[in-house]
Simulated assay, not measured.
Amino acid sequence: MRITQGCFSFLPDLDDAQITAQVQYMLDRGWAVSVEYTDDPHPRNTYWEMWGHPMFDLRDAKGAMIELDDCRKAHPDSYIRMMAFDSTRGFETVMMSFIVNRPAAEPRLHMTRTDFESRSQKYGWDARI
């Protein structure tokens, strides 16, 4: 199963040149960029671990790519995403996010069905790698 969250999640993984172009797009709009990572990409887990600080004054995508490379080295088997925040309204609003790193083996969900009394059935899920 491929985790699909954020922009571009149904496309093939972006290469570093494409990531750099997207980060520059974020910066050209005045958005702050951050790098986040997690081992639990559940859709309700919106609070991933932040790598470093948000890059509010960054003007060149190379700075964000350096941070991304450092995060990849420290957490090669984690999900890593790039986030863009807009603070023009006085609070941080997520404008864009996309996954830039995935573990080699993504978790899978397996459905089990158990026959129960009176022809009823119960379903359950378990995670598998």
Rank of each mutant, 00 (worst) to 15 (best):
E49M: 09
E49Y: 11
M50L: 15
M50E: 15
W51E: 08
H53G: 05
P54F: 08
P54W: 09
P54C: 07
P54M: 10
P54Y: 10
M55W: 11
M55E: 08
M55V: 06
M55F: 12
F56L: 15
F56R: 15
D57G: 13
D57E: 13
D57P: 02
D57C: 13
L58N: 02
D60W: 06
A61G: 03
K62H: 07
G63V: 14
G63Q: 11
A64V: 05
M65N: 05
I66H: 09
I66Y: 06
I66A: 11
I66K: 12
E67Q: 12
D69P: 05
D69Q: 09
D70W: 03
D70C: 09
C71W: 01
R72W: 00
R72N: 01
K73P: 01
K73E: 10
K73L: 04
A74Y: 07
A74C: 13
A74V: 10
A74Q: 15
H75N: 15
D77S: 09
D77A: 11
S78V: 01
Y79Q: 05
Y79H: 04
Y79S: 04
Y79N: 01
I80G: 00
R81P: 03
R81W: 01
M82A: 01
M82V: 01
M82K: 00
M82H: 00
M83A: 04
M83S: 02
F85E: 02
D86Q: 00
T88E: 09
T88L: 06
R89H: 09
R89I: 03
F91V: 04
E92A: 11
E92W: 03
T93L: 09
T93G: 03
M95D: 01
M96S: 12
S97I: 05
S97P: 02
F98V: 14
F98Q: 11
F98I: 15
I99Q: 02
I99S: 00
V100F: 01
R102M: 10
P103E: 10
A104D: 05
A104R: 05
A104T: 12
A105M: 14
E106R: 10
E106Q: 14
E106N: 09
R108T: 05
R108L: 07
R108Y: 06
R108K: 10
L109C: 08
H110T: 06
H110S: 15
M111A: 13
M111D: 15
M111G: 08
R113Y: 11
T114Q: 15
T114M: 13
T114L: 13
T114P: 07
D115P: 03
D115K: 14
F116P: 00
F116T: 09
E117K: 04
E117A: 12
E117R: 04
S118C: 06
S118P: 03
R119Q: 12
R119D: 15
R119F: 14
S120L: 09
Q121M: 07
K122M: 06
K122E: 05
K122T: 11
K122S: 07
K122V: 07
W125A: 07
A127G: 08
R128V: 13
